[in-house]
Design a binder for these strands. Structure first.
Lengths: 230, 230
DNA sequence: TCAAAAGTGTTCGCTATACACCCATGG
DNA sequence: CCATGGGTGTATAGCGAACACTTTTGA
Protein backbone atom coordinates (compact mmCIF):
# COMPACT_ATOMS: atom_id res chain seq x y z
CA UNK A 1 0.00 0.00 0.00
CA UNK A 2 2.90 2.38 -0.62
CA UNK A 3 1.79 4.14 -3.74
CA UNK A 4 1.22 7.25 -1.63
CA UNK A 5 3.78 9.22 -3.51
CA UNK A 6 2.81 12.77 -2.54
CA UNK A 7 4.30 13.98 0.71
CA UNK A 8 3.69 17.17 2.64
CA UNK A 9 4.90 18.60 5.88
CA UNK A 10 1.40 19.64 6.85
CA UNK A 11 -1.89 17.91 6.15
CA UNK A 12 -3.68 19.07 3.00
CA UNK A 13 -7.41 18.86 2.34
CA UNK A 14 -8.86 17.36 -0.81
CA UNK A 15 -10.50 19.87 -3.14
CA UNK A 16 -13.46 19.07 -5.35
CA UNK A 17 -15.82 21.00 -7.57
CA UNK A 18 -19.52 20.21 -7.50
CA UNK A 19 -22.00 21.46 -10.05
CA UNK A 20 -25.65 22.27 -9.40
CA UNK A 21 -27.10 21.99 -12.90
CA UNK A 22 -30.36 23.85 -13.39
CA UNK A 23 -32.68 23.19 -16.29
CA UNK A 24 -36.17 24.47 -17.07
CA UNK A 25 -38.80 22.09 -18.39
CA UNK A 26 -41.30 24.74 -19.39
CA UNK A 27 -43.05 24.79 -16.04
CA UNK A 28 -40.65 23.98 -13.25
CA UNK A 29 -37.02 24.47 -12.42
CA UNK A 30 -35.14 21.14 -12.37
CA UNK A 31 -31.76 20.01 -11.09
CA UNK A 32 -29.66 17.17 -12.44
CA UNK A 33 -28.68 14.59 -9.82
CA UNK A 34 -26.59 11.44 -9.96
CA UNK A 35 -27.14 8.39 -7.82
CA UNK A 36 -24.14 7.39 -5.76
CA UNK A 37 -22.82 3.89 -6.46
CA UNK A 38 -20.44 3.67 -3.52
CA UNK A 39 -20.32 4.37 0.18
CA UNK A 40 -20.71 6.67 1.93
CA UNK A 41 -24.30 7.62 1.06
CA UNK A 42 -24.53 4.75 -1.44
CA UNK A 43 -27.87 4.94 -3.24
CA UNK A 44 -28.45 8.58 -2.28
CA UNK A 45 -28.60 11.29 -4.89
CA UNK A 46 -25.96 13.99 -5.15
CA UNK A 47 -24.69 16.71 -7.43
CA UNK A 48 -22.12 15.68 -10.01
CA UNK A 49 -18.62 16.63 -9.03
CA UNK A 50 -15.12 15.36 -8.58
CA UNK A 51 -11.60 16.09 -7.60
CA UNK A 52 -9.91 19.13 -8.98
CA UNK A 53 -6.88 18.32 -11.10
CA UNK A 54 -3.62 20.04 -10.31
CA UNK A 55 -3.37 21.75 -13.69
CA UNK A 56 -6.90 23.07 -14.00
CA UNK A 57 -8.68 25.98 -12.37
CA UNK A 58 -11.88 25.36 -10.43
CA UNK A 59 -13.86 26.79 -13.32
CA UNK A 60 -12.20 24.42 -15.77
CA UNK A 61 -12.90 21.57 -13.39
CA UNK A 62 -16.57 22.50 -13.13
CA UNK A 63 -16.84 22.77 -16.91
CA UNK A 64 -15.23 19.36 -17.23
CA UNK A 65 -17.72 17.86 -14.80
CA UNK A 66 -20.54 19.52 -16.65
CA UNK A 67 -19.36 18.12 -19.96
CA UNK A 68 -19.00 14.65 -18.55
CA UNK A 69 -22.55 14.74 -17.22
CA UNK A 70 -24.43 16.55 -19.93
CA UNK A 71 -22.19 16.69 -22.99
CA UNK A 72 -22.55 20.48 -22.99
CA UNK A 73 -19.46 22.57 -23.70
CA UNK A 74 -20.43 26.20 -23.61
CA UNK A 75 -22.89 26.41 -20.78
CA UNK A 76 -23.15 29.29 -18.37
CA UNK A 77 -21.58 28.44 -15.02
CA UNK A 78 -21.06 30.53 -11.95
CA UNK A 79 -19.11 29.90 -8.79
CA UNK A 80 -21.35 30.65 -5.84
CA UNK A 81 -19.80 29.30 -2.65
CA UNK A 82 -17.07 27.13 -1.19
CA UNK A 83 -18.06 24.61 1.45
CA UNK A 84 -15.44 23.80 4.02
CA UNK A 85 -16.90 22.39 7.21
CA UNK A 86 -14.28 19.97 8.57
CA UNK A 87 -16.53 16.92 8.71
CA UNK A 88 -18.79 17.38 5.72
CA UNK A 89 -17.30 14.24 4.19
CA UNK A 90 -16.98 11.43 6.75
CA UNK A 91 -13.92 9.92 5.04
CA UNK A 92 -11.52 12.84 4.91
CA UNK A 93 -11.32 16.60 4.86
CA UNK A 94 -12.89 17.75 1.60
CA UNK A 95 -13.33 21.33 0.47
CA UNK A 96 -15.84 21.82 -2.31
CA UNK A 97 -15.89 24.77 -4.65
CA UNK A 98 -19.48 24.82 -5.83
CA UNK A 99 -20.81 26.11 -9.15
CA UNK A 100 -24.23 26.31 -10.59
CA UNK A 101 -24.81 25.79 -14.28
CA UNK A 102 -27.74 27.02 -16.34
CA UNK A 103 -28.43 24.75 -19.28
CA UNK A 104 -31.13 24.31 -21.85
CA UNK A 105 -32.82 21.15 -20.67
CA UNK A 106 -33.74 20.11 -24.17
CA UNK A 107 -30.07 20.19 -25.24
CA UNK A 108 -29.13 17.53 -22.70
CA UNK A 109 -29.37 14.04 -24.09
CA UNK A 110 -30.70 12.27 -21.00
CA UNK A 111 -28.15 10.50 -18.86
CA UNK A 112 -25.37 9.62 -21.33
CA UNK A 113 -22.41 8.02 -19.65
CA UNK A 114 -23.52 8.41 -16.07
CA UNK A 115 -25.93 5.52 -15.95
CA UNK A 116 -28.06 6.95 -13.19
CA UNK A 117 -28.37 10.67 -13.75
CA UNK A 118 -31.81 12.23 -13.71
CA UNK A 119 -33.66 15.53 -13.60
CA UNK A 120 -35.68 16.41 -10.51
CA UNK A 121 -38.12 19.29 -10.17
CA UNK A 122 -37.11 21.48 -7.24
CA UNK A 123 -40.09 20.42 -5.16
CA UNK A 124 -39.42 16.73 -5.68
CA UNK A 125 -35.75 16.62 -4.80
CA UNK A 126 -35.07 13.70 -2.46
CA UNK A 127 -32.78 13.96 0.59
CA UNK A 128 -29.28 14.34 -0.78
CA UNK A 129 -25.88 12.94 0.15
CA UNK A 130 -23.34 14.84 2.28
CA UNK A 131 -24.32 18.49 2.79
CA UNK A 132 -25.80 18.75 -0.68
CA UNK A 133 -29.17 19.85 0.64
CA UNK A 134 -27.50 22.97 1.92
CA UNK A 135 -25.55 23.36 -1.31
CA UNK A 136 -28.84 23.34 -3.21
CA UNK A 137 -30.42 25.91 -0.91
CA UNK A 138 -27.40 28.15 -1.28
CA UNK A 139 -27.32 27.74 -5.05
CA UNK A 140 -30.96 28.73 -5.33
CA UNK A 141 -30.45 31.75 -3.13
CA UNK A 142 -27.51 32.91 -5.23
CA UNK A 143 -29.33 32.30 -8.49
CA UNK A 144 -32.25 34.38 -7.26
CA UNK A 145 -29.83 37.08 -6.27
CA UNK A 146 -27.94 36.98 -9.53
CA UNK A 147 -31.06 37.36 -11.61
CA UNK A 148 -31.47 40.86 -10.23
CA UNK A 149 -28.25 41.95 -11.91
CA UNK A 150 -28.01 39.85 -15.03
CA UNK A 151 -30.74 38.35 -17.17
CA UNK A 152 -29.33 34.88 -16.61
CA UNK A 153 -32.74 33.37 -17.17
CA UNK A 154 -32.20 33.32 -20.89
CA UNK A 155 -29.52 30.67 -20.48
CA UNK A 156 -32.28 28.29 -19.45
CA UNK A 157 -34.57 28.86 -22.43
CA UNK A 158 -34.27 27.67 -26.01
CA UNK A 159 -33.10 30.25 -28.51
CA UNK A 160 -36.64 31.14 -29.50
CA UNK A 161 -39.28 31.48 -26.85
CA UNK A 162 -42.55 33.21 -26.06
CA UNK A 163 -43.02 35.86 -23.42
CA UNK A 164 -45.29 33.44 -21.59
CA UNK A 165 -42.44 30.92 -21.34
CA UNK A 166 -40.12 33.61 -20.06
CA UNK A 167 -42.65 34.58 -17.44
CA UNK A 168 -43.10 30.99 -16.29
CA UNK A 169 -39.34 30.72 -15.96
CA UNK A 170 -39.05 33.81 -13.82
CA UNK A 171 -41.96 32.67 -11.71
CA UNK A 172 -40.32 29.27 -11.25
CA UNK A 173 -36.99 30.74 -10.25
CA UNK A 174 -38.28 33.42 -7.93
CA UNK A 175 -41.33 31.52 -6.73
CA UNK A 176 -43.68 34.43 -7.33
CA UNK A 177 -46.56 35.28 -9.64
CA UNK A 178 -46.63 38.17 -12.09
CA UNK A 179 -49.49 39.81 -13.84
CA UNK A 180 -49.28 38.52 -17.39
CA UNK A 181 -49.92 41.91 -18.99
CA UNK A 182 -47.55 43.89 -16.82
CA UNK A 183 -44.82 41.35 -17.36
CA UNK A 184 -45.33 41.54 -21.10
CA UNK A 185 -45.13 45.31 -21.17
CA UNK A 186 -42.13 45.40 -18.90
CA UNK A 187 -40.22 43.02 -21.14
CA UNK A 188 -41.15 44.96 -24.25
CA UNK A 189 -40.12 48.17 -22.61
CA UNK A 190 -36.77 46.83 -21.42
CA UNK A 191 -35.71 46.25 -25.00
CA UNK A 192 -33.75 43.07 -24.32
CA UNK A 193 -35.98 40.97 -26.56
CA UNK A 194 -36.00 40.84 -30.33
CA UNK A 195 -39.38 39.99 -31.77
CA UNK A 196 -39.23 37.48 -34.61
CA UNK A 197 -41.57 37.27 -37.56
CA UNK A 198 -42.35 33.72 -36.58
CA UNK A 199 -45.20 32.72 -34.36
CA UNK A 200 -45.94 29.50 -32.55
CA UNK A 201 -49.09 27.60 -31.78
CA UNK A 202 -48.66 25.98 -28.40
CA UNK A 203 -52.30 25.41 -27.57
CA UNK A 204 -55.76 25.50 -29.10
CA UNK A 205 -55.97 29.26 -28.63
CA UNK A 206 -54.40 32.21 -30.30
CA UNK A 207 -50.88 31.86 -31.63
CA UNK A 208 -48.08 33.88 -30.04
CA UNK A 209 -44.95 35.67 -31.19
CA UNK A 210 -41.51 34.19 -30.74
CA UNK A 211 -38.62 36.23 -29.36
CA UNK A 212 -34.86 36.00 -29.13
CA UNK A 213 -32.67 37.44 -26.41
CA UNK A 214 -30.91 40.54 -27.71
CA UNK A 215 -27.29 40.06 -26.63
CA UNK A 216 -26.03 43.20 -28.35
CA UNK A 217 -28.57 45.33 -26.51
CA UNK A 218 -27.67 43.66 -23.25
CA UNK A 219 -23.96 44.37 -23.67
CA UNK A 220 -24.87 47.97 -24.39
CA UNK A 221 -26.89 48.20 -21.19
CA UNK A 222 -24.19 46.50 -19.19
CA UNK A 223 -21.60 49.05 -20.20
CA UNK A 224 -23.71 51.93 -19.01
CA UNK A 225 -24.80 50.12 -15.89
CA UNK A 226 -28.47 49.41 -15.52
CA UNK A 227 -31.08 48.04 -13.21
CA UNK A 228 -32.90 44.79 -13.73
CA UNK A 229 -35.83 44.47 -11.40
CA UNK A 230 -38.41 41.73 -10.94
CA UNK B 1 14.36 16.28 5.38
CA UNK B 2 11.92 13.49 6.21
CA UNK B 3 9.46 15.33 8.35
CA UNK B 4 7.02 15.14 5.45
CA UNK B 5 4.67 12.97 7.37
CA UNK B 6 1.47 13.44 5.37
CA UNK B 7 1.14 11.10 2.41
CA UNK B 8 -1.46 11.03 -0.33
CA UNK B 9 -2.01 8.95 -3.41
CA UNK B 10 -2.82 12.05 -5.46
CA UNK B 11 -1.38 15.55 -5.19
CA UNK B 12 -3.31 17.94 -2.95
CA UNK B 13 -3.34 21.71 -3.21
CA UNK B 14 -2.71 24.00 -0.27
CA UNK B 15 -5.74 25.93 0.92
CA UNK B 16 -5.58 29.39 2.45
CA UNK B 17 -8.05 32.04 3.50
CA UNK B 18 -7.37 35.67 2.68
CA UNK B 19 -9.25 38.57 4.17
CA UNK B 20 -9.94 41.88 2.45
CA UNK B 21 -10.56 44.13 5.44
CA UNK B 22 -12.55 47.26 4.65
CA UNK B 23 -12.67 50.25 6.94
CA UNK B 24 -14.18 53.71 6.50
CA UNK B 25 -12.23 56.77 7.62
CA UNK B 26 -15.10 59.20 7.30
CA UNK B 27 -14.38 60.09 3.70
CA UNK B 28 -12.88 57.17 1.87
CA UNK B 29 -13.07 53.42 1.91
CA UNK B 30 -9.80 51.86 3.09
CA UNK B 31 -8.31 48.38 3.03
CA UNK B 32 -5.85 46.90 5.48
CA UNK B 33 -2.68 45.56 3.85
CA UNK B 34 0.38 43.83 5.26
CA UNK B 35 3.85 44.09 3.82
CA UNK B 36 5.38 40.77 2.87
CA UNK B 37 8.62 39.97 4.67
CA UNK B 38 9.62 37.00 2.56
CA UNK B 39 9.86 35.95 -1.05
CA UNK B 40 8.04 35.73 -3.32
CA UNK B 41 6.84 39.31 -3.61
CA UNK B 42 8.99 40.38 -0.65
CA UNK B 43 8.30 44.02 0.12
CA UNK B 44 5.01 44.05 -1.77
CA UNK B 45 1.73 44.57 0.01
CA UNK B 46 -0.88 41.86 0.29
CA UNK B 47 -4.05 40.95 2.13
CA UNK B 48 -3.63 39.17 5.43
CA UNK B 49 -4.24 35.46 5.17
CA UNK B 50 -2.83 32.08 5.93
CA UNK B 51 -3.22 28.36 5.73
CA UNK B 52 -6.47 26.80 6.72
CA UNK B 53 -6.16 24.45 9.66
CA UNK B 54 -7.57 20.96 9.32
CA UNK B 55 -10.04 21.37 12.15
CA UNK B 56 -11.47 24.76 11.28
CA UNK B 57 -13.91 25.86 8.61
CA UNK B 58 -12.90 28.55 6.14
CA UNK B 59 -15.03 31.04 8.02
CA UNK B 60 -13.32 30.20 11.30
CA UNK B 61 -9.98 30.54 9.54
CA UNK B 62 -10.88 33.94 8.17
CA UNK B 63 -12.08 35.10 11.60
CA UNK B 64 -8.84 33.88 13.09
CA UNK B 65 -6.82 35.84 10.52
CA UNK B 66 -8.94 38.88 11.18
CA UNK B 67 -8.39 38.64 14.91
CA UNK B 68 -4.65 38.23 14.48
CA UNK B 69 -4.49 41.34 12.31
CA UNK B 70 -6.95 43.66 13.99
CA UNK B 71 -7.80 42.21 17.38
CA UNK B 72 -11.47 42.26 16.41
CA UNK B 73 -13.58 39.28 17.35
CA UNK B 74 -17.11 39.90 16.20
CA UNK B 75 -16.68 41.58 12.87
CA UNK B 76 -18.88 41.02 9.88
CA UNK B 77 -17.20 38.79 7.32
CA UNK B 78 -18.48 37.35 4.08
CA UNK B 79 -17.05 34.77 1.75
CA UNK B 80 -17.10 36.16 -1.77
CA UNK B 81 -14.96 34.03 -4.07
CA UNK B 82 -12.43 31.24 -4.24
CA UNK B 83 -9.36 31.77 -6.39
CA UNK B 84 -7.89 28.68 -7.96
CA UNK B 85 -5.74 29.48 -11.00
CA UNK B 86 -3.03 26.81 -11.04
CA UNK B 87 -0.07 29.21 -11.01
CA UNK B 88 -1.33 32.08 -8.90
CA UNK B 89 1.35 31.24 -6.35
CA UNK B 90 4.73 30.55 -8.00
CA UNK B 91 5.82 28.12 -5.29
CA UNK B 92 3.04 25.59 -5.24
CA UNK B 93 -0.60 25.11 -6.03
CA UNK B 94 -2.58 27.31 -3.64
CA UNK B 95 -6.32 27.70 -3.51
CA UNK B 96 -7.55 30.75 -1.65
CA UNK B 97 -10.98 31.09 -0.14
CA UNK B 98 -11.41 34.85 0.05
CA UNK B 99 -13.50 36.81 2.54
CA UNK B 100 -14.12 40.45 2.99
CA UNK B 101 -14.52 41.94 6.43
CA UNK B 102 -16.28 45.17 7.35
CA UNK B 103 -14.80 46.72 10.46
CA UNK B 104 -15.05 49.98 12.33
CA UNK B 105 -11.74 51.58 11.51
CA UNK B 106 -11.59 53.39 14.79
CA UNK B 107 -11.87 50.09 16.71
CA UNK B 108 -8.64 48.79 15.19
CA UNK B 109 -5.62 49.64 17.26
CA UNK B 110 -3.15 50.35 14.50
CA UNK B 111 -0.88 47.44 13.53
CA UNK B 112 -0.59 45.40 16.74
CA UNK B 113 1.46 42.31 16.23
CA UNK B 114 1.89 42.52 12.50
CA UNK B 115 4.62 45.12 12.44
CA UNK B 116 3.91 46.39 8.97
CA UNK B 117 0.16 46.51 8.53
CA UNK B 118 -1.41 49.70 7.28
CA UNK B 119 -4.62 51.19 5.94
CA UNK B 120 -4.77 52.35 2.32
CA UNK B 121 -7.54 54.38 0.71
CA UNK B 122 -8.91 52.53 -2.29
CA UNK B 123 -7.45 54.98 -4.76
CA UNK B 124 -3.99 54.77 -3.24
CA UNK B 125 -3.58 51.02 -3.11
CA UNK B 126 -0.15 50.06 -4.48
CA UNK B 127 0.38 47.10 -6.81
CA UNK B 128 -0.22 44.01 -4.72
CA UNK B 129 1.44 40.62 -4.41
CA UNK B 130 0.16 37.51 -6.21
CA UNK B 131 -3.26 38.01 -7.79
CA UNK B 132 -4.40 40.26 -4.95
CA UNK B 133 -5.23 43.11 -7.32
CA UNK B 134 -7.90 40.91 -8.81
CA UNK B 135 -9.01 39.77 -5.37
CA UNK B 136 -9.54 43.40 -4.41
CA UNK B 137 -11.52 44.18 -7.57
CA UNK B 138 -13.71 41.14 -6.97
CA UNK B 139 -14.22 42.01 -3.32
CA UNK B 140 -15.34 45.52 -4.19
CA UNK B 141 -17.72 44.25 -6.83
CA UNK B 142 -19.28 41.82 -4.38
CA UNK B 143 -19.52 44.41 -1.63
CA UNK B 144 -21.33 46.76 -3.99
CA UNK B 145 -23.64 43.95 -4.93
CA UNK B 146 -24.27 42.91 -1.37
CA UNK B 147 -25.21 46.39 -0.27
CA UNK B 148 -28.30 46.17 -2.48
CA UNK B 149 -29.67 43.38 -0.34
CA UNK B 150 -28.38 44.06 3.12
CA UNK B 151 -27.51 47.32 4.83
CA UNK B 152 -23.96 46.11 5.42
CA UNK B 153 -22.71 49.66 5.42
CA UNK B 154 -23.55 50.04 9.08
CA UNK B 155 -20.82 47.56 9.95
CA UNK B 156 -18.33 50.19 8.82
CA UNK B 157 -19.66 53.06 10.92
CA UNK B 158 -19.33 53.73 14.62
CA UNK B 159 -22.39 52.99 16.69
CA UNK B 160 -23.56 56.57 16.55
CA UNK B 161 -23.32 58.48 13.30
CA UNK B 162 -24.88 61.31 11.36
CA UNK B 163 -26.86 60.93 8.17
CA UNK B 164 -24.13 62.86 6.41
CA UNK B 165 -21.56 60.26 7.43
CA UNK B 166 -23.82 57.49 6.23
CA UNK B 167 -24.20 59.22 2.90
CA UNK B 168 -20.45 59.68 2.51
CA UNK B 169 -20.03 55.98 3.20
CA UNK B 170 -22.53 54.94 0.57
CA UNK B 171 -20.97 57.34 -1.90
CA UNK B 172 -17.52 55.94 -1.15
CA UNK B 173 -18.63 52.34 -1.58
CA UNK B 174 -20.72 52.80 -4.69
CA UNK B 175 -18.66 55.63 -6.17
CA UNK B 176 -21.69 57.80 -6.86
CA UNK B 177 -23.14 61.08 -5.58
CA UNK B 178 -26.52 61.50 -3.94
CA UNK B 179 -28.60 64.55 -3.39
CA UNK B 180 -28.17 65.34 0.29
CA UNK B 181 -31.86 66.05 0.90
CA UNK B 182 -33.21 63.06 -0.96
CA UNK B 183 -30.80 60.74 0.79
CA UNK B 184 -31.90 62.10 4.14
CA UNK B 185 -35.56 61.62 3.40
CA UNK B 186 -35.05 58.16 2.00
CA UNK B 187 -33.22 57.07 5.12
CA UNK B 188 -35.87 58.54 7.40
CA UNK B 189 -38.57 56.88 5.37
CA UNK B 190 -36.90 53.47 5.39
CA UNK B 191 -37.16 53.36 9.15
CA UNK B 192 -33.85 51.59 9.75
CA UNK B 193 -32.42 54.45 11.76
CA UNK B 194 -33.19 55.39 15.33
CA UNK B 195 -32.76 59.06 16.03
CA UNK B 196 -30.97 59.80 19.27
CA UNK B 197 -31.48 62.79 21.53
CA UNK B 198 -27.81 63.59 21.22
CA UNK B 199 -26.36 65.88 18.63
CA UNK B 200 -22.84 66.46 17.45
CA UNK B 201 -20.86 69.43 16.34
CA UNK B 202 -18.51 68.34 13.60
CA UNK B 203 -17.80 71.72 12.05
CA UNK B 204 -18.31 75.44 12.60
CA UNK B 205 -21.87 75.22 11.29
CA UNK B 206 -25.08 73.87 12.61
CA UNK B 207 -24.98 70.78 14.83
CA UNK B 208 -26.52 67.54 13.57
CA UNK B 209 -28.51 64.66 15.03
CA UNK B 210 -26.90 61.34 15.81
CA UNK B 211 -28.51 58.05 14.79
CA UNK B 212 -28.17 54.38 15.56
CA UNK B 213 -28.86 51.51 13.23
CA UNK B 214 -32.15 49.87 14.21
CA UNK B 215 -31.33 46.17 14.24
CA UNK B 216 -34.77 45.11 15.44
CA UNK B 217 -36.45 46.93 12.59
CA UNK B 218 -34.03 45.40 10.15
CA UNK B 219 -34.75 41.87 11.32
CA UNK B 220 -38.43 42.62 10.97
CA UNK B 221 -37.94 43.77 7.39
CA UNK B 222 -35.75 40.80 6.58
CA UNK B 223 -38.42 38.34 7.61
CA UNK B 224 -40.97 39.88 5.31
CA UNK B 225 -38.51 40.29 2.47
CA UNK B 226 -37.79 43.81 1.36
CA UNK B 227 -35.97 45.90 -1.15
CA UNK B 228 -32.98 48.05 -0.40
CA UNK B 229 -32.18 50.38 -3.24
CA UNK B 230 -29.47 52.95 -3.70
C1' DT C 1 -70.81 30.59 -29.59
C1' DC C 2 -67.88 30.06 -26.02
C1' DA C 3 -63.69 29.42 -23.36
C1' DA C 4 -58.99 30.43 -23.21
C1' DA C 5 -54.90 32.72 -24.28
C1' DA C 6 -52.40 36.78 -26.58
C1' DG C 7 -51.78 41.45 -27.28
C1' DT C 8 -53.01 46.49 -26.04
C1' DG C 9 -54.74 50.47 -23.01
C1' DT C 10 -55.92 53.02 -18.85
C1' DT C 11 -55.78 54.45 -14.19
C1' DC C 12 -53.77 55.10 -9.69
C1' DG C 13 -50.37 55.54 -6.32
C1' DC C 14 -45.73 55.42 -4.97
C1' DT C 15 -41.11 56.96 -5.19
C1' DA C 16 -36.95 58.79 -7.32
C1' DT C 17 -35.36 63.16 -8.66
C1' DA C 18 -34.74 67.93 -8.83
C1' DC C 19 -35.18 71.72 -6.73
C1' DA C 20 -36.56 75.95 -3.12
C1' DC C 21 -36.68 77.38 1.54
C1' DC C 22 -35.70 78.17 6.46
C1' DC C 23 -32.67 77.37 10.60
C1' DA C 24 -28.46 77.49 13.23
C1' DT C 25 -23.70 78.69 13.92
C1' DG C 26 -19.02 80.87 13.82
C1' DG C 27 -16.21 84.07 11.82
C1' DC D 1 -24.40 89.69 8.09
C1' DC D 2 -23.00 86.13 5.46
C1' DA D 3 -21.09 81.71 4.15
C1' DT D 4 -21.78 77.02 5.27
C1' DG D 5 -24.03 73.01 6.42
C1' DG D 6 -28.48 70.77 8.52
C1' DG D 7 -33.36 69.84 8.37
C1' DT D 8 -37.94 70.23 5.85
C1' DG D 9 -41.16 71.00 1.92
C1' DT D 10 -42.93 70.69 -2.90
C1' DA D 11 -43.60 69.66 -7.89
C1' DT D 12 -42.86 66.48 -11.68
C1' DA D 13 -41.90 62.34 -14.17
C1' DG D 14 -41.68 57.52 -14.50
C1' DC D 15 -42.75 53.08 -13.21
C1' DG D 16 -45.18 49.20 -10.98
C1' DA D 17 -49.59 47.19 -9.74
C1' DA D 18 -54.31 46.46 -10.82
C1' DC D 19 -57.60 45.72 -14.07
C1' DA D 20 -60.78 46.46 -18.76
C1' DC D 21 -60.96 45.48 -23.46
C1' DT D 22 -60.18 43.39 -28.03
C1' DT D 23 -58.54 39.64 -31.00
C1' DT D 24 -57.80 34.96 -32.40
C1' DT D 25 -58.52 30.23 -32.38
C1' DG D 26 -60.34 25.33 -31.72
C1' DA D 27 -63.74 22.66 -29.80
Amino acid sequence: MEDLKYHYKYPHPSVTTDCVIFGFDGTKLNVLLVERGIEPFKGRWAFPGGFLKMDESAEQGALRELFEETGLENAYIKQFHTFSEPHRDPRERVITIAYYALVKLQDVKGGDDAASADWFPLDEVPPLAFDHDMILRTALKELRRQIHFEPVGFELLPEKFTVKELQLLYEAILDVKFDRRNFYKKMMHLGLLTQLKETIHNHPQRESFLFKFNHAKYDEFKQKGFKLEF
